[in-house]
Amino acid sequence: MDAGAASPLESVDRALQLLEALASRGADGATLAELATGTGMHKTTAHRTLGALRHRQFVAQDGETGRYRLGRGAVALADRFLDEGNLPSLLHGALVALCAATDELVHLGVLSGAQVLYLDKVEPDRPVRVWSAVGRRRWAVTTALGRAMLAYSGTSREALDGYVRPTGGDGRSSERAVEADHVWHELERARTRGYAVEQEENEAGISCVAVPLVR
Rank of each mutant, 00 (worst) to 15 (best):
G146F: 06
G169I: 01
H92N: 14
L19T: 06
T102D: 04
H47T: 00
A30T: 08
A23R: 15
Y152C: 07
S112V: 09
I206Q: 06
M41R: 03
S24Q: 14
V128A: 11
R147P: 01
D103K: 12
L82V: 10
A94C: 12
E198W: 02
S174V: 10
G40L: 05
P212Y: 03
Q57T: 10
H55R: 14
H107N: 13
A210L: 11
D125L: 14
D161C: 01
A177H: 09
P127E: 07
A159K: 10
A23Q: 14
T155F: 04
Y152N: 07
E10Q: 15
G38F: 01
L50S: 04
R67H: 05
L150C: 02
L53D: 02
V128G: 00
E34G: 13
E20I: 07
A190K: 01
A60Q: 14
A3W: 08
R67N: 02
L18C: 07
D79S: 13
V214C: 10
S24T: 13
V106K: 11
V59L: 03
R54K: 14
V209Y: 05
T65D: 01
G169L: 05
G85E: 10
H42L: 05
A52M: 02
L19H: 06
L87V: 08
V106T: 14
T142E: 04
V110E: 08
L160Q: 02
S24R: 15
A30C: 08
L95S: 10
V106F: 09
V134D: 01
L9M: 09
Q61K: 12
T143F: 09
A60H: 11
L35Q: 00
D83H: 15
R25K: 14
R189G: 02
A148N: 03
A180E: 04
P124W: 09
V110M: 11
V214G: 00
